[in-house]
Amino acid sequence: MRPETEPLPVPLLREITTLLAKDFRLEWRQKSALGGLLLYVGSTVFVCFLSFSLRGGQPPAPAWNALLWVILLFAAINAVAKGFMQESPGQRLYYYTLVRPQAIILAKMLYNALLLMAVALLGLFLYTVFLGNPIQDAPLFVANLLLGAVGFATTLTLVSGIAAKAGGNGATLMAVLGFPVMVPMLLLLIKVSKNALDGLDRSVSHQSLLTLLALNMLVGALSYVLFPYLWRG
């Protein structure tokens, strides 16, 4: 174990960028995982399209909204779940000797946030192509979507670390552990996205957006504090 008083030669930021680059390189090398995720989003959207086309095209706005968030939620859980689980215990031990646990959690959160933002934007694009576009305030909707992607990433990263420790049926456990923590965030996100769909005045959504930001920061800070304890095992 490394004594804590001794200053580390490498600054935290360098460690984070190196880890982030490693994650992107890994993702690029195993394209099957990324492709699987995109296919997952695409096929869910297509199934929604098929089931609504039975009733003659576009779903009503509340259903449109609810389905979009359900799709994104499950895509997020699938995307984040593989983060810690694809690493073997030996690999984890190797990282432990090299970098600070804080760098690992921050890099992972950042990586997941970028990944989920990309998935969310692509999902929205496919969704509007297949199921129509009832959004009246597009900038607010997209901003809310990105904030949601970041929120999913911050919440689910620590949860995926916890689920990876438990081993076994990781994705199920992650859904069970993650859902209750995400419900408050989801309620706010769905409310703001409904406001954007209906084109309400932006002042209506201010308070919710601020709460969402504060919630993201709270969850991020909690993960930062708690992750070293998880890592120590």
């Binding site: 919440t155 620590l158 438990a166 552990l177 209750p180 709270l218 909690l222 993960s223 998880l230 095992g233």
Partner: peptide, 17 residues
Amino acid sequence: QRARVSAIYNIFAFAAV
């Protein structure tokens, strides 16, 4: 392992929600 990880989840979920 169970004790540590469940303590982490307990704190995380309570403080976040």
